[in-house]
């Protein structure tokens, strides 16, 4: 299991800082929830971890994100295998324009798995892990777009698991789901955290309370406070954290 640590990370869009000098270690095999008001840099931070931040070419990143001691922003870093290691679950489920089966095997095939039997094995295993197997096992060839939104999000999770990630980055993964689908996704996180490091960006404080082992609070691009969830929720040390938890700032 890889260990992620962030050192003096600073990000600016067109000269406007979005993250300022962020340093902390993400605990392994736990759910780390990143909380904070909108525009505080949560999503920017998450996008640094798999370097999707590169997509925006007016962005400047300083500092380091170390995975097992290696800086992912180093010039010679292998972005493709980094992204394989960091699974992503986005706000709105983004199913690929292909069948359910092909959605799951898309990643493994990119990374060189070709054998039919192996691919079928991966599909079943990952769909089971995302507890979607029972619902779709009879129609794996159907277009993924025909699934309900909740099912699509679980398919995206299965697709992410299929490339054997080491961490799961989740950007408000329940934001576009109905309460029941959201609950099933949350349930999955509880199961997955035994094997994966989960980084969860959320603006729902209650979700953070339910799921998080570790809490990180961002405010206006700054890392204000981080620590074990219980401790931070019951006894925040910074007044800004307290105000946010009390709902005074949101």
């Amino acid at each position: 299991m890889s260990h992620i640590s962030v050192r003096n990370l600073t990000v600016a869009y067109n000269g406007h800082p979005a993250l300022r000098d962020v340093s902390f270690d993400i605990p392994d095999r736990q759910v780390t929830a990143i909380i904070g008001p909108s525009g505080c840099g949560k999503t920017t931070f998450l996008r640094c971890l798999n370097r999707l931040i590169d997509v925006n070419n007016s962005v400047r990143v300083q500092g380091q994100v170390l995975i097992d001691g290696e800086d992912i922003f180093a010039p010679r870093a292998d972005v493709m295998s980094l992204r394989r290691k960091m699974g992503l679950l986005s706000q709105k489920p983004q199913v690929l324009p292909m069948s359910i089966f092909d959605n799951v095997t898309y990643g493994p095939r990119l990374h060189g798995v070709r054998k039919r039997a192996q691919l079928e094995q991966i599909v079943e295993r990952c769909l089971r892990m995302a507890s979607l197997w029972d619902e779709v096992s009879g129609r794996l060839r159907a277009p993924a777009a025909e699934l309900s939104v909740g099912q699509q999000q679980r398919l995206c999770l299965a697709r992410g698991l299929a490339v054997q990630p080491e961490a799961l980055l989740c950007d408000e993964p329940t934001a576009s789901l109905d309460p029941i689908s959201a609950q099933s996704i949350e349930q999955l996180f509880m199961e997955l955290k035994n094997d994966y490091t989960v980084v969860l960006v959320t603006h729902i404080l209650r979700q953070a309370r339910r799921l998080a082992d570790y809490l990180v609070f961002f405010y206006m691009g700054e890392l204000v406070e981080h620590g074990p969830a219980q401790q931070m929720l019951s006894n925040p040390s910074d007044p800004r954290t307290r105000k946010y938890l009390e709902g005074v700032i949101s």
Partner: peptide, 12 residues
């Protein structure tokens, strides 16, 4: 169940 993903394999 572990599919042999070998993404660190340099040539591929």
């Amino acid at each position: 169940a572990g599919p042999p993903i070998d993404a660190d394999r340099p040539t591929g």
